[in-house]
C-alpha cells in the first residue's frame, strides 16, 4: 500500500532510495512509480540528496569479458521476437514411419495457431520531454493511462493517433476522454515495434480531415517490453 500522506510517502521514498525496503515493499514501489507522480517526485529528491554517497564505493574495473556478454545480450534483444517453440519433434519421432500426412497436418495446425502478440510499451513525452502517458499493448490493442492528468485547453479536444513504421499518414484512434484512461480495441490498430503514438490538440469532435491539424502534445515510440 503506497501511503497518500505526504510525510509517510516521503519516508517510504527515502527508504526506497536508501535500499532498506524488503523485496515485497521494493517491488510495490517499483510498480507504483510509473503511475504515482508524487512518489516519483519524492524518490527523485532522495536520489539527488543521497547520490553523492555512491562515491564512497571504490571504483573497480569490471571483468574483461563482461562487455562481450553485454553485446551478445544487446544483439539478442535487437532480434525480432523469437517464434514460440513448437513441440512437434517427439511426435515425428514416435511416428517415424506411417502417419506422415497426419503429423504434417498436425504440425501445420500448430504453426497456424496465432502466437501471443509480444508485449510492447512506451511513455509519451511532452515537448519538454516530461513523461505524460504510459502506453501498453493489451489483448492485441492498446491501453493508455495518464501519469499526470491535466485540463485540456477549453474548446479543444485531444485526439490519439498511431503511425505504423513506414506509413506516411497516421491513423486516428479516437478522442481522448477526460478520465485519463484510454483503451483501443485490437480492430483499430495493430501495435508493432517502432509505431509512433501521439496525441494532438484538435477542434471539438476531432480533426475534420482525418489527419492531425493541431500541435503534438505527447509522443512516443512503441518498443518491445522486457519480459523480466
Amino acid at each position: 500500500m503506497i501511503p497518500s500522506d505526504p510525510e509517510a510517502l516521503d519516508a517510504l521514498a527515502a527508504e526506497h532510495v536508501l535500499g532498506t525496503l524488503d523485496a515485497r515493499e521494493a517491488a510495490e514501489v517499483a510498480r507504483a512509480l510509473p503511475v504515482n507522480p508524487a512518489l516519483r517526485e519524492a524518490v527523485a529528491h532522495w536520489e539527488a540528496r543521497l547520490a553523492p554517497l555512491s562515491d564512497l564505493a571504490r571504483p573497480e574495473p569490471p571483468p574483461a569479458a563482461l562487455w562481450d556478454r553485454i553485446e551478445v545480450s544487446l544483439a539478442d534483444r535487437a532480434m525480432p521476437a523469437p517464434v514460440r517453440p513448437i513441440r512437434v519433434a517427439p511426435l515425428w519421432k514416435a511416428w517415424a514411419v506411417g502417419s506422415t500426412a497426419l503429423a504434417a497436418g498436425l504440425a501445420a495446425f500448430m504453426l497456424l495457431r496465432p502466437a501471443e502478440p509480444p508485449r510492447m510499451m512506451t511513455v509519451l513525452l511532452t515537448s519538454r520531454d516530461q513523461p505524460a502517458w504510459v502506453v501498453e499493448t493489451e489483448g492485441g490493442g492498446l491501453r493508455l493511462a495518464s501519469l499526470n492528468p491535466r485540463p485540456v485547453e477549453s474548446g479543444r479536444v485531444q485526439q490519439l493517433w498511431a503511425l505504423p513504421p513506414g506509413a506516411t499518414a497516421p491513423i486516428s484512434l479516437g478522442l481522448v476522454p477526460e478520465s485519463g484512461q484510454v483503451s483501443v480495441a485490437p480492430g483499430l490498430v495493430r501495435p508493432e515495434p517502432g509505431m509512433l503514438i501521439e496525441i494532438t490538440l484538435e477542434p471539438p469532435g476531432g480533426s475534420p480531415i482525418g489527419r492531425p491539424t493541431g500541435p503534438i502534445l505527447f509522443i512516443g515510440n512503441l518498443t518491445p517490453a522486457r519480459s523480466s
Binding site: A57, P59, P61, P62, L66, W67, I70, L74
Partner: peptide
C-alpha cells in the same frame, strides 16, 4: 563509467560474479 558502476554493485553484493551480473543488467 563501467568501473564506477561495477564498484557500486560490488560494494553491495561483495561477490565479483554477482556484481558482473548486476552491471550486465544495468547496462541493458
Amino acid at each position: 563509467q563501467g568501473s564506477r558502476l561495477f564498484g557500486i554493485a560490488l560494494a553491495i553484493l561483495r561477490d565479483r560474479d554477482a556484481a558482473a551480473d548486476a552491471l550486465h543488467d544495468a547496462v541493458l
